[in-house]
Design a protein around this nucleic acid. Structure first.
Lengths: 375, 375
DNA sequence: TTGAATTTTGATAGCGCTATCACTACGCTC
DNA sequence: GAGCGTAGTGATAGCGCTATCAAAATTCAA
């Protein structure tokens, strides 16, 4: 029974009260079933005004240390959790955050959504989803300008976060932006990502540790930063192991199954085909598996294939793919956090802060890798 | 600029205001930037009280048809969207709804989530996601009992909605349940689904219209109701066209890629292979394509392959699959609606009502179908 | 020690919505 | 036509929280 992990607030998930309407007589010490602790109860118990409690809870204003301490203790005692609805209503913090995506069938969209929406609901923030498909640069600019007027922050998954047009427009509008899973740290917007370079390096090392040396690489879409980093990671690992990279073993792909098909076709048509293929994402890896099968090659006996991202595709195909897992859901949730913090800062008139949050990835070993076939 | 399709509500996605605090002088007709339309503005414009607007918007009470019409028009004109925070604060409705899923990589999960979360946020309802993987019947029972205590309604996508244990436990606890995309209308819980029988029938007719008669069928998981219906639809269409169904052309599958691989293998190993394969879902269809390719068959020139569900897989593989599209997102959103209505009814002490909501599906024609190869 | 500058605290007034109940019509029965 | 329901509507009073500003407590300088 999973549930979604918690972030900023105590173990219990936030409640939106189900209390009886009248009957909140302020002296009764017993909790009415289902009724949440309110700020008033905390205030009363601590002998301060609700306002002071509010200040303490929001860590915001200037409260004397002693008072703060007292209130915090009371909060803990009563296990008080601010009512998200009330908060966002009162604060007029109307903090809406947009999550804009293109390519709606992007495989990790579901995870992205789970994470983002969970993070948003924890913070009582409204998440606005928007799809920008088939847009020209100009349309994107316009859309960016428009969205900038109606939300307080934006989360940009790839490939949108690579669009200079979109980013600059958003930055110009002065609203905080977080790029999620974008390959490289960009100078003007914050990012939550994994270390693509390191991950690709590890994957390559993994392959090498099985004894592979003719390791082919299918590159990702050239205009996505992550593609370059993954390639560099591959190169670095190969170099570190003293294995020269055969340039004919590196093919350009575009993250699509189709492009993977073509790249793998070229790779396996060679007189001396590779013993392993490292594709820059799972779709292309799946395509490589398919090509291998078409040529009567067994995976992993005759050839090992690995992917990247750990999307549903990785476990759909057979054999299931060894790949790199990005904790997309967690990353999405942190994005919301980050954004909210920026927004608050901005409201307080502080300077824009850009952070680069790198989270841990994980090499997931499944059934698509084996030692090279000596035959 | 897409947004998510709307259901009950106008084109724009829900708003939480970002308004200036003062300065809502009620006569100014110009929208202040970022300020959302409030119920008062609608009320004033329509010349009724806010309360009446509230009633109309919630479709709830008894409002005269003329008034309702007027208010609805005004709402549409002003593009009013209720403020979720205010609503849940005032209503103290604390309505939490659980969406429980197994098999997290289920391909349409993302769409399911988009729809459900969109619907939930529209209704200011907290959506709780829960994953129940690797559970025994007993654990499921316990989990059901537990969740029943903390939420007011449950949405059950397949395969969970097929579990008698879960359903009965939930029904016994007295909380409304909506099965989504479950094949058959179940007696004790409501459902939102497409007409699987009809859809399969149409798909088969589509194949027949191309001139196919040796049409193979790969069945879905035997314990999912939709599987049976799809198979029956196929049979019905064949019978209607006067084409006898060759039993050797029907293979059992389990909705997994792997099972599709095996089924297709058997099908194409025959002396006289089919000219078309109708797989009960996209994953198995993708597997069939892969097997065909392995055997040097071109899709669709040498063999046509069609799937069901229109999951990302359908457009990932090459050629892209002709398939049946279920409007999962819209279905999820209606589920929320349905649930909310049930919950409200239940609160009003009315009897439990079970509804069966069948939505329209769509045959999506792509590149995996052609006339049978005469050669 | 006194006045002003500052920090800390509290009272008040909503945020946008809905529950509740009171009130108006308009039927109906007898 | 008085009495009684019953739809349809509106006035009022909050839901739990925070913005705002005024008041109180504290500090500091002179």
């Amino acid at each position: 029974m999973g549930g979604i992990y918690s972030n900023a607030w105590p173990a219990t998930t936030t409640f939106m009260q189900t209390a009886p309407r009248k009957a909140r007589n302020s002296s009764s010490p017993t909790r009415r079933k289902g009724a949440a602790v309110t700020i008033h109860e905390v205030a009363q118990r601590a002998g301060v005004s609700p306002m002071t409690v509010s200040r303490v809870v929001n860590g915001n204003a200037n409260v004397r240390a002693a008072t703060r301490e007292l209130v915090m203790r009371t909060v803990r005692e009563l296990n008080y959790t601010p009512n998200a609805a009330a908060r966002s209503l009162a604060a007029a913090s109307g903090t809406r955050i947009a999550l804009i995506y293109t390519n709606p069938s992007s495989a990790y969209l579901s995870e992205l959504l789970v994470g983002a929406l969970d993070g948003a609901s924890k913070a009582a923030t409204q998440l606005v989803l928007d799809t920008w498909d088939h847009m020209t640069r100009a349309t994107e600019r316009a859309a960016a300008r428009k969205i900038a007027q109606s939300v307080a922050g934006v989360i940009l998954p790839p490939p949108l976060c690579e669009s200079k047009a979109v980013c600059s427009e958003l930055v110009a509008a002065g609203i905080p932006v977080v790029a999620i899973a974008s390959g490289r740290f960009q100078p003007d917007i914050s990012g939550v990502r994994i270390d693509d370079f390191r991950a690709a390096q590890e994957m390559t090392e993994h392959l090498i540790s099985f004894g592979h040396s003719r390791i082919a690489f299918i590159k990702g879409h050239p205009n996505q930063t992550a593609s370059g980093l993954r390639y560099e990671g591959y190169q670095a690992a190969m170099a570190a192991a003293g294995i020269p990279v055969d340039p004919t073993l590196v093919q350009q792909g575009f993250f699509t199954y189709r492009s993977g098909l073509e790249a793998a076709e070229k790779l396996l048509a060679r007189k001396k085909p590779p013993t392993a293929i490292f594709a820059s994402n799972d779709d292309m890896a799946a395509a490589a598996v398919s090509v291998a099968h078409r040529r009567g090659l067994d995976v992993p006996r005759d050839i090992s294939v690995v992917g990247f991202d750990d999307t549903p595709t990785a476990t759909t195909v057979w054999p299931e793919l060894t790949t790199i897992r990005q904790p997309i859901a967690a990353m999405a949730a942190s994005s919301i956090d980050l954004l909210l913090r920026s927004i608050r800062r901005r409201k307080d008139g502080e300077a824009r802060v850009v952070v680069d949050h790198v989270v841990a990835h994980m090499l997931v070993k499944r059934d698509s890798v084996a030692a090279p076939n000596p035959g």
